[in-house]
Design a protein around this nucleic acid. Structure first.
Length: 572
RNA sequence: GGCCCCGUAGUUCAAUGGAUAGAACGAAAGCCUUCUAAGUUUUAGAUCUAGGUCCGAUUCCUAGCGGGGUCACCA
């Protein structure tokens, strides 16, 4: 039984009913875990301070009345204002928590909240023929981590991608290719990037020359009709994009179970539009376009089909829902991860799907825009930071630092380790903030590796690894009662919170909880490490106990990093 | 203009309605013959404004101010 379960039991035995929640205590001098009496006081119509005093006295008398106390986990119970604070025995909690971690290893912190529930998550749902920028990077970091969070909470989650390879953006790019770059060959290995640039160029040009938009519309019509004159160039360029994306996905650790293409679902989407028209859910609007009037839901009007017959995102998204439900039976939740500028769009989409009869839970997570210190990104003015550029920027800085620290390493090792540290830094940076907040991406901040950063966490893992290598002790038959320093206790208590952190990150769809927690653990470890020597001790039993604590810390940090989709590296 | 999101130290971010609002970077001053200094110790520094609900508000409500997003043929 864990220490918090024992405390819960103590409180229950003292006559408190209902759900009991324990909270951390602001300062170690005030105790280790607290029970707040506000709700209890309300239920009993008493003053919370008085309530806490009575409860503490009651529990205390049981504690010293040696009737049936399971363990000596709780040393003292004290009322602090409206709180009942528990002082725990460090040895006992260390024994409980560290053995738990040792036993469960990589599975420590897992739960089965989502047992036998199927969830589909769609990300980054990017467009072929366009660039991959830092907005997509944020998407991927959050998506990777959410997928893992659902997994460790026991869900059967299917990460999928929905590649938009068949919309107006493709037509624009192909039109630009034809108009400005006919006969040119893309730089080798950079085909996807090259297409993205051409898309941006065409887009900017068409903004300035709207009279030529007809030509790109014509291109889209040909495309949707699968006209032979455009089909082979479409196939070729599409593959360039896909290959380019796959390279990035692989580097960032994205593993989609399946990819849906707009091209394959758009026609089904058009059929749904016909159905919606037949069942009077949709209607013919201005100029002959097909719309759904969602005004009674305060969602304006959804445009399902252009007046020229061509489809839009909504058209394809309806088709995607059909394809998804054909492939996956009994979906309990479908998660869509996109930029927050699509919040309204997804409200419309979900409402239309609901009207069309789909009943599973639909969740849209709109993460905030990634801004630059000088303002908003905009492909129109060319102020876009591409993924490759960020990766290179951070990588070069890490390489410089690593080379300084390890002059003896060969080039290959330097490059390999630096890339992993760089990716850890980038992922951590993009997971730090709550998803719905707009963030400012600052290159100067992204290339600092001190403090609340990925490299800091990796550094602590590296220090622990180094000690474990040097210690060469089998971590068996450990005397946990030797761990009685305050720093040791704080670290142990924190390690015990991991399961709650996993639940909290799931409840709020929020990976930033994990970054904060991993930093807290690393910091608590650092406090312990700075004050107490692990290996340089006469008492070999103490060395063993401390190494066990280090090992448990490493395990929790690794589990946490894995959930953030950050690869752990052994050497630094 | 309607709707949605956001306003917390100089900067970037935390804080299920609860204890003295936490970090990081930056600034000032210390700590490497001692387990990896990408470390550590100390100092200074903040809840946009005005009301309201509550025993208690950074958190909830109303209004205002400021920033961002979005509002049918873009994605």
């Amino acid at each position: 039984m864990s220490s918090s379960e024992l405390i819960l039991k103590l409180i229950q035995n003292a006559g408190v009913e209902g759900e009991i929640k324990l909270s951390p205590v602001p300062k170690p001098e005030m105790g280790d875990l607290a029970f707040s009496c506000f709700e209890l006081a309300k239920a009993q119509g008493k003053n919370p301070v008085e309530c806490a005093r009575d409860l503490a006295a009651k529990i205390d008398s049981r504690l010293h009345g040696n009737d049936n106390v399971d363990d000596c986990v709780v040393e003292r119970v004290v009322a602090f204002g409206p709180y009942v604070n528990f002082f725990l025995n460090s040895g006992s909690i260390a024994k409980n928590i560290i053995s738990d971690i040792q036993k469960q290893g990589k599975k420590y912190g897992f739960n089965d909240v989502g047992k036998s529930k199927k969830v589909v998550i769609e990300y980054p749902s990017n467009n072929t023929h366009k660039e991959l920028h830092i907005g997509h990077l944020r998407n991927i970091c959050i998506g990777n981590s959410l997928t893992n969070i659902f997994r460790v909470n026991g869900f059967n989650i299917e990460p999928i991608n929905y590649l938009n390879d068949f919309g107006a953006h493709v037509a624009k790019c192909l039109w630009g290719l034809e108009k400005f770059h006919k006969g040119e060959k893309p730089p080798k290995g950079e085909e996807q990037k090259w297409l993205g640039e051409i898309y941006a160029e065409a887009s900017i040009y068409l903004e300035a020359h709207p009279e030529e938009k007809e030509e790109s519309f014509a291109m889209q019509k040909k495309l949707e009709a699968r006209d032979r004159s455009v089909w082979s160039i479409f196939k070729k360029t599409r593959q360039w994009s896909i290959d380019g994306f796959d390279k990035v996905f692989k580097e960032l650790g994205v593993k989609h179970n399946r990819v849906f293409y707009e091209q394959d679902v758009k026609d089904d989407g058009q059929k749904i539009v016909d159905n919606l028209l037949n069942t009077k859910i949709a209607q013919v609007g201005e100029g002959g376009a097909i719309i759904v009037d969602l005004n009674k839901f305060n969602l304006d009007i959804g445009l399902l089909r252009k007046s020229n017959g061509a489809g839009l995102y909504l058209t394809s998204d309806l088709g995607l829902a059909v394809a998804k439900n054909k492939k996956y039976k009994n979906i309990s939740e479908s998660i869509h991860l996109t930029g927050s500028e699509q919040n309204f769009y997804f409200k419309q989409l979900f409402k239309i799907l609901e009207l069309a009869g789909y009943k599973y839970k639909m969740t849209h997570i709109g993460y905030g825009l990634v801004m630059l210190p000088e303002g908003k990104m905009s492909s129109r003015t060319g102020k876009v930071v591409l993924y490759d550029d960020v990766r290179d920027l951070v990588y070069n800085k890490v390489l410089e630092e690593t080379t300084k620290r390890h002059p003896d390493w060969n080039k290959k090792k330097l490059a390999n380790v630096s890339l992993k540290i760089a990716l850890a830094a980038i992922k951590f940076e993009f997971l730090k903030h709550e998803a719905n907040k707009t963030i400012i991406f600052d290159a100067a901040m992204a290339t600092k590796f001190e403090g609340f950063t990925g490299p800091y966490i990796l550094y602590m893992v590296a220090r622990i690894n180094s000690m474990l290598r040097k210690g060469k002790v089998k971590l068996k038959n450990i005397d946990f009662s030797l761990l009685k320093e305050s720093e040791e206790k704080q670290l142990v208590l924190l390690l015990g919170e991991y399961g709650e952190v996993i639940k909290k990150s799931f409840d709020n769809y929020n990976p930033s909880v994990l970054t904060k927690y991993s930093f807290d653990v690393a910091q608590a470890f650092s406090n312990f490490y700075a004050k107490h020597s692990v290996l340089n001790n006469e008492n070999t039993e103490l060395v063993k106990a401390r190494l066990a604590l280090c090992g448990a810390t490493k395990q929790v940090l690794e589990n946490c990093l894995a959930t953030m989709s950050i690869e752990v590296i052994d050497i630094m």
